[in-house]
């Protein structure tokens, strides 16, 4: 086969997720409230992914929450919650070489939420819903790259396209699930998370 792209892509996934986590951690300087809130949201998302992932196939009430976390709490919190979600839920669903790429994808979902807030400060849950729908397909497309590089050969656009077509129904299910859950639960979740965002934001007044 010549070059072993499967190996390179898997290794690139492992190293980039490790570097991203390390870099974000050093930059973020998390305090106790941020740590426990991020951990709790990650556990919440992971539970949502693992519990409903088995029962409802690909309809998971999870991706939109990661997106909203990024939207409300910013890129770093969004990335952490996103990256932790597959890591934690895979402890229960099956850890594998696919985990690093899943972590990157979910982390990007969280960061894209923060990007939405930066670009459209007045965006509401409708924008998030549209983005969630797109991510349903985008996530499948990115994960297909990993699968394609490891398990198929020869690597050409046609084989990628076929793999993508094979997963299209699953991707559509995921996108539809995201759309449904975000439309039903999005606006309340934003309210709840904003409330906690305010609660967390402690400022000390000096010289009083």
């Amino acid at each position: 086969m010549g070059t072993n792209w499967g190996l390179y892509i898997t290794m690139a996934g492992i190293f980039s997720v490790a570097l991203l986590m390390l870099g974000m951690e050093k930059k973020a300087g998390l305090n106790a409230r941020q740590v426990s809130l991020i951990a709790m949201l990650a556990a919440f998302c992971a539970a949502g992914r693992a519990v409903t992932g088995v029962a409802l196939l690909f309809l998971q009430p999870t991706m939109f929450l990661v997106e909203i976390t990024g939207f409300v709490f910013g890129a770093r919190a969004g990335f952490f919650v996103g990256a932790m979600t597959p890591l934690i839920s895979n402890f229960f669903m099956g850890q594998g070489p696919w985990t690093p790429w899943q972590m990157i994808c979910w982390g990007l979902v969280g960061m894209s939420g923060a990007a939405v807030r930066r670009l459209f400060p007045h965006a509401g849950y409708k924008t998030i819903t549209v983005l969630c729908f797109i991510w349903g397909y985008l996530y499948g497309a990115v994960m297909d790259v990993w699968q394609w590089s490891v398990f198929t050969g020869p690597l050409c656009f046609k084989s990628y396209f076929l793999l993508w077509v094979a997963g299209f129904s699953f991707d559509s299910l995921r996108a539809a699930g995201n759309l449904l859950f975000c439309a039903a639960l999005g606006s309340q979740s934003i309210k709840i998370l904003r409330y906690f965002h305010k609660k967390m934001d402690v400022r000390y007044l000096e010289n009083i």
Partner: peptide, 10 residues
């Protein structure tokens, strides 16, 4: 710490 906390919360 985040991973350990979240795993424990799960």
């Amino acid at each position: 710490l985040l991973v350990a906390l979240a795993t424990r919360m799960f």
